[in-house]
């Protein structure tokens, strides 16, 4: 099966077809939607989209890492990482689509 990459433009096109807003407004809304999700996460909020999945921010403590090429030890600073957990509905749909 040939694999394709979906981008913002495809999402905007789907909104345009499904909702009947102008193309411009459709693409603005896709952008605003993503921006709202980002803003919530940056605020430290989790984002739960039922039947899709949830995004949560995990705080990682400092640890000692190693440059795999040179073997030099470097501290990996405390940081936040974003974790996505797919819902069962999404997992089921992905496996049914086979």
């Amino acid at each position: 099966m040939e694999s394709k990459t979906i981008t913002r433009a495809d999402l905007a096109e789907a909104v345009y077809e499904q909702v009947g807003l102008s193309r411009n407004e459709s693409s603005d809304l896709v952008e605003v939607l993503l921006e709202e999700v980002c803003a919530a996460l940056v605020n430290g909020d989790n984002v739960k989209i039922s039947s899709f999945g949830s995004f949560s921010v995990r705080k990682k403590g400092q640890r000692i890492g190693r440059n795999p090429k040179t073997g030099v030890e470097v501290p990996i600073l405390p940081r936040k990482v974003l974790v996505f957990r797919a819902s069962h509905v999404l997992k089921d749909r992905i496996n049914k689509g086979q």
């Binding site: 694999s3 979906i6 999402l11 039947s51 999404l90 749909r93 992905i94 689509g97």
Partner: peptide, 13 residues
Amino acid sequence: TVFDEITGALARG
């Protein structure tokens, strides 16, 4: 639509 579209894309691989 946005989340359905993402789901559909992933279901197609």
